[in-house]
């Protein structure tokens, strides 16, 4: 019996040829991640909820939100807040779902380059964001036409390209916050709570702080991303708002993403 025996170091034979000689292209990984977004019950419900909210908001707008004109711009902008609440949840779950359910074990065994998986997830949620925004604009267009006809008022096509782009920007930045928090926290329920804290609680706390602390009242927007984002729904945006968007995004997206990625790329998957 060979007890406490270590094998001699194996001589390095010529490495056998591989069947899997090329890495899966990023587009394929994005396709897989898009599938993962909708193939669980939770994911499917979330997407259905988003579609339902879009249609319900517009239906309500069609019935009661039409005054002198049916305003396309207001039909679109009214959807920004619910989208800002729901779309980032898709991003949070896209990342945390791997960890809460431990699918990461299979995912990263199939694709050991973890950064590529994260990039594919980011692109997948970006595509979902673009699609959802396009859907909301399309439904709003139908909504104003119906609303105008229903109430017999003219339709005002008053959505500037600039405003539409900023609505999209709000969605994308919010989704980026959700994604960053997901990467940082890597657990579904806490990740969702963190995002809700960001979008619902942080602006309240910020407003309270502003009423007590003069410095925060004048400088808070440089760090307060959710409140800064509100300015982007307005018809005009100042250069200062853009600068504030930059600094606060760095804080709310850049920092969690950098810290979270560092951990995600190194941590032992178990």
């Amino acid at each position: 019996m060979t007890a406490v025996d270590t094998a001699p170091p194996a001589h390095d034979a010529v490495a056998p040829t591989l069947r899997g000689a090329t890495a899966p292209p990023l587009a394929r990984l994005v396709d897989v991640e898009l599938r993962k977004v909708r193939d669980t019950r939770a994911g499917a419900w979330l997407l259905a909820t988003i579609a339902f909210v879009v249609v319900a908001m517009i239906a309500a707008g069609t019935a009661w939100g039409v005054n002198a004109t049916a305003s396309f711009g207001s039909f679109v902008s009214v959807q920004v807040m619910p989208m800002q609440l729901l779309l980032p949840m898709v991003a949070v779950l896209a990342v945390t779902g791997e960890w809460s359910q431990r699918g990461a074990l299979t995912t990263f065994a199939l694709v050991p380059r973890r950064g590529r998986v994260v990039a594919a997830k980011a692109l997948a949620v970006l595509l979902v964001t673009l699609a959802a925004t396009a859907l909301s604009v399309a439904v709003a267009a139908v909504g104003v036409l119906v609303g105008g006809a229903l109430h017999d008022v003219p339709v005002a096509w008053d959505l500037t390209a600039d405003q539409a782009a900023r609505a999209l920007l709000i969605h994308v930045v919010s989704v980026a916050v959700g994604f960053g928090l997901g990467v940082l926290i890597r657990s579904s329920a806490p990740g969702l709570v963190a995002y809700l804290g960001f979008v619902l609680v942080a602006p309240m706390l910020s407003a309270i702080a502003a009423s007590y602390v003069a410095w925060w009242a004048s400088h808070g927007l440089w760090l307060d991303l959710p409140t800064t984002l509100q300015a982007f729904s307005a018809p005009q945006v100042t250069g200062e708002s853009w600068a504030q968007l930059g600094t606060s995004t760095l804080l709310w997206v850049g920092v969690p993403l950098a810290v979270g990625l560092r951990g995600l790329l190194r941590t032992e998957i178990r």
């Binding site: 591989l18 000689a21 890495a23 065994a109 199939l110 050991p112």
Partner: peptide
């Protein structure tokens, strides 16, 4: 980690 598409091997 250096296997390009490890699931095939």
């Amino acid at each position: 980690a250096d296997l390009p598409n490890p699931g095939l091997d």
